[in-house]
Design a protein around this nucleic acid. Structure first.
Lengths: 124, 124
DNA sequence: TTAGGTGCAAAACCTTTGCCATCCC
DNA sequence: GGGATGGCAAAGGTTTTGCACCTAA
């Protein structure tokens, strides 16, 4: 059974209150302000738990590090190739295309992720 | 100036002859059959060189490790959440959406990657 | 009470790098 | 010859794990 711990609550609360798509390390640093002796292991374990529970989403692992955000309506991300920042796009995910791919391939398609690459306003 | 070495050729040749989107480690194992004493450092260095030269593409928005393929027309990928396989989709990348995002955000958008998730034929 | 959670530290992984020998042009 | 490469091994950085001790329910 799943318990409610202050560590897990703190991580989830942090993600609820940011749009910065922090890395595990940034989350660790932030949470440590309130819970100084929290360990990285706990951060990673809880991020996994929260993902399994569907409370948060993991985005982008390509060479960069994983970043996290609270689960929200399907949307896309932009990743700056210079500074590495990740920004939510208003463009919302098109669920129809999942069905289209499923029909064509015979696979079960649950969702898709799209990431746009280029330079953000500050870096261009 | 760029030289032609058997190590780099072997890696590129391997990627040209597969559709399996191998990881760096799988590439290392495969190339080692012909060049037994090739080192992983060389594999990684050459994968970077080849990517910089535009000969290959690194893929995976949300994969555990990076996977590689030879450069080809823009297309999307499907990643099985059970067995981890990566499969090319016929659906081709829509360049228009890059421009659309660029206009809306004011960012410079060079390209995008889309990955579909679910279960492949063998795993469903 | 007790199964799930936490801290800590070590281990596991993947990727990059320094150094020097080697090879291609 | 001389700069680009390669091999080897060590270093780096991120994430996972084992274990003994807690703690929420």
């Amino acid at each position: 059974m799943r318990r409610e711990t202050k560590q897990r609550e703190a991580i989830l609360e942090l993600l609820r209150n940011t749009r910065s798509h922090p890395t595990a390390d940034q989350i660790y640093d932030d949470v440590r302000v309130d819970i100084p002796n929290i360990s990285k292991g706990t951060v990673y374990r809880n991020l996994q738990v929260l993902e399994n529970d569907g409370a948060i989403t993991v985005i982008g692992i390509n060479g960069a590090r994983s970043r996290y955000e609270v689960k929200q309506k399907g949307h896309y991300h932009f990743r700056c190739e210079k500074c590495g920042c990740v920004i939510d796009l208003e463009e919302s995910a098109d669920k129809k295309i999942d069905k289209k791919i499923a029909t064509r391939t015979g696979f079960t398609v649950s969702h898709h992720q799209t990431e746009f690459y280029g330079l953000c306003k500050n870096c261009r």
